[in-house]
Design a protein around this nucleic acid. Structure first.
Length: 307
DNA sequence: AACGCGGGGGA
DNA sequence: TCCCCAGCGTT
């Protein structure tokens, strides 16, 4: 079957828009190493670009190569991760560095299959590194791409909560056949989703696909999955308590341990844990942090520090 | 398939 | 206040 003119038209429009509107992000600059790209992708997992940018720059200056990060004390890695969120990613990134050193001669592998075996690297990150670090043809499917294709092609306000096989195959069908074009398409659609086709209040008048968008053509119908998108709460959750405990430990001078009561109080935001609606919450959060390897306990559990 | 996991900034 | 952000690993 020959390529559809409509498809090529969509490709051309997105590519031209990207050429004119791409942000100058540091990990996109020529000469960025594959490892530096991988680090950026892991940091960008659920953390917005504006917060990743300064952290990535400092990180790459401190630990330019996988071997550098592999040799660092985990406590330093967690402190440098600072408040990017989901600190387990920092530990996995270091495990990833060690795997690259141990199994790939210190070079980031090129195939998605090999990348998927690395800690902290899932379907999205494997495709993104293959495409953006190695220039390979891969189906990069993140929240931005899913939203743009969902709107322009499917006419949905937002993609369904779960990413299924059908959606992945559809996205693959829209990937340009040429390798170089596929890479630009991937980054171009992502950028379009980040800057124009945003989740809330999209700037449709600035969109290169305005006249080709199924969602706009349908009158911009509401999200049919809205009732199923239960927002994860934050106030009073274990995650918030874990975050407070980690923040307290990050501030601790190197070599010092925090007492158990001190740490539980930090988890309760300075209050007496016994006064919380769930008095056991801080202790539970601390135990989970130890189980995750984010906190190291003294042999007698009297003190705690970063690992 | 569903859940847990940080933290912050814009609407 | 709510909601979303270049997701991943576990169950």
């Amino acid at each position: 079957m020959r390529a559809e003119p409509r498809l090529e038209d969509i490709h051309a429009r997105v590519l031209a828009w990207y050429d004119a509107n791409a942000r100058d992000l540091p990990w996109r600059r020529p000469g960025t190493s594959p490892w530096a790209v991988l680090v950026s992708e892991v940091m960008l997992q659920q953390t917005p670009v504006v917060r990743v940018e300064p952290a990535w720059t400092a990180w790459m200056e401190r630990w330019p190569a996988p071997a550098d990060l592999a040799a660092a004390p985990p406590a330093d890695v967690l402190r440098a991760w600072d408040r990017l969120g989901y600190p387990r990613r920092a530990l996995r990134l270091q495990e990833c560095a060690r795997a690259v050193v141990a199994h790939h001669g210190g070079e980031v592998p090129e195939t998605e299959e090999e990348l998927l075996d690395l800690p902290g690297v899932g379907a999205y990150t494997a495709a993104a590194v293959a495409a953006f670090a190695h220039g390979r043809r891969a189906v990069v499917l993140d929240t931005n791409v899913r939203r743009v294709l969902g709107r322009a092609i499917e006419g949905r306000a937002l993609p369904p909560p779960a990413l299924g096989r059908a959606e992945r195959e559809r996205a693959a069908g829209y990937l340009p056949a040429g390798t170089a074009e596929s890479v630009r398409w991937n980054v171009g659609v992502m950028e379009l989703g980040a800057l124009v086709c945003t989740a809330r209040s999209p700037r449709c008048t600035a969109c290169p696909l305005l006249g080709r968008c199924a969602w706009v053509a349908a009158g911009r119908p509401d999200d049919e999955h809205a009732h199923r998108r239960r927002t994860q709460g934050w106030h009073g959750t274990d995650r918030q308590v874990r975050g407070r405990i980690m923040a307290h430990l990050r501030r601790l001078p190197d070599g010092l341990a925090a007492g158990r009561e001190e740490l539980l109080a930090a988890g309760a935001d300075g209050a007496d844990p016994a006064a919380l609606p769930d008095p056991a919450q801080p202790a539970r959060a601390l135990a989970s942090l130890v189980a995750d390897g984010l906190v190291a306990a003294e042999p007698d559990a009297s003190g705690f520090r970063l690992p």
